[in-house]
C-alpha cells in the first residue's frame, strides 16, 4: 500500500523541499518582525501587525495573484530580480518556496512574538550587568528562551506550507517535478479519470505527514521546555 510511484515520490520530496526552504527563508524576517512587534513601540505598528496577518485572512488565490503581479517577470520586483540576478520565481520551485514562506509567515510571527513577549526583560538587564554584550545576550539568553516559540512557529508554518494550494497554483502553476507539491498532485489526480486510487494514497500520505509534524512539534516542545526549566513534565 505504501509503495509509492515515482510521481508520488517526486511530489513528496518537492513538498518537503519547498516547505523547509520556505520556513528557513521566513525565519530571520519572522524573528525581526516578531521582535519589533513584541518589544518596540513605533508609529504604524498596528499597520505592520495587520500586514503580517494578511496572508491568514485574504483568500490564498488572491495572495498568489498579488505575488504574481509583484514578483512576475514583468512585476516591479520580479523584473528587477530577473535583470540583476537572473532570478526567475514564476513556475519554479523557488517561487513555490516563497509562497510557502509568505503563507506561513503570520503563524511563525505569532508564535515567536508570544515567546519573545514572555521573556523577562529583567533577565536581559541582569545579563548586561554581568558583562554580556547585546549579541551574547541574544545567543545565550534570548535564543534559548525563545526556542519553544521558534519550534512551534516553524512547525506550524511548515504544516501550513505543506497544505498550501491556492496561492501556489496562482503564482507558480502546477508543473510536475517543479511546482507540483502534494496538494497540487492530489488535485491533478482527482481531475484525471481513474486517478482515485492515486488520490487516496496522496490523501493518506498528507495525513501521515501532518500527524508526524504534530507529533514532532509536541515531543520537541516538551523536551525543550524540560531543558529550559529543569522541571519534570
Amino acid at each position: 500500500m505504501l509503495e509509492l510511484t515515482d510521481a508520488e515520490w517526486i511530489a513528496l520530496v518537492l513538498s518537503l523541499k519547498v516547505a523547509v526552504t520556505g520556513v528557513a527563508v521566513s525565519l530571520p524576517f519572522g524573528f525581526a518582525i516578531a521582535w519589533l512587534l513584541a518589544r518596540k513601540t513605533f508609529p504604524g505598528k498596528l499597520l505592520l501587525d495587520g500586514l503580517v496577518h494578511l496572508p491568514l485572512v485574504v483568500p490564498p488565490v488572491a495572495t498568489g495573484y498579488l505575488l504574481l503581479v509583484l514578483l512576475g517577470v514583468n512585476g516591479p520586483l520580479g523584473s528587477w530580480l530577473n535583470d540583476q540576478f537572473g532570478i526567475r520565481l514564476v513556475f519554479t520551485w523557488q517561487g513555490a518556496a516563497i509562497v510557502a514562506a509568505v503563507m506561513g509567515f503570520p503563524l511563525l510571527v505569532r508564535a515567536l512574538r508570544l515567546s519573545i513577549e514572555a521573556i523577562d526583560v529583567g533577565l536581559v538587564q541582569a545579563a548586561r550587568t554581568l558583562g554580556a554584550s547585546p549579541l551574547r545576550v541574544f545567543v545565550t539568553i534570548i535564543l534559548p528562551l525563545v526556542s519553544p516559540g521558534l519550534i512551534a512557529g516553524s512547525l506550524l508554518a511548515f504544516s501550513r506550507a505543506l497544505g498550501e494550494f491556492g496561492a501556489t497554483i496562482a503564482f507558480v502553476g502546477n508543473l510536475p517535478g517543479e511546482t507540483q507539491t502534494l496538494p497540487l498532485a492530489l488535485y491533478s489526480a482527482l481531475q484525471s479519470p481513474g486517478g482515485e486510487e492515486m488520490g487516496y494514497r496522496l490523501v493518506g500520505l498528507s495525513v501521515l505527514l501532518a500527524i508526524a509534524t504534530l507529533a514532532a512539534s509536541e515531543l520537541l516542545g516538551r523536551s525543550v521546555r524540560r531543558r529550559l526549566t529543569g522541571a519534570p513534565q
Binding site: G122, L123, Q125, R128, G131, A132, I141, L228, T229
Partner: peptide, 16 residues
C-alpha cells in the same frame, strides 16, 4: 556590560 558593577535585584533573575 562595561561598567564593572555587580547588581542584585529584588527578584533573583537567575537564568532559568
Amino acid at each position: 556590560e562595561h561598567r564593572e558593577l555587580g547588581m542584585v535585584f529584588q527578584e533573583a533573575r537567575l537564568f532559568p
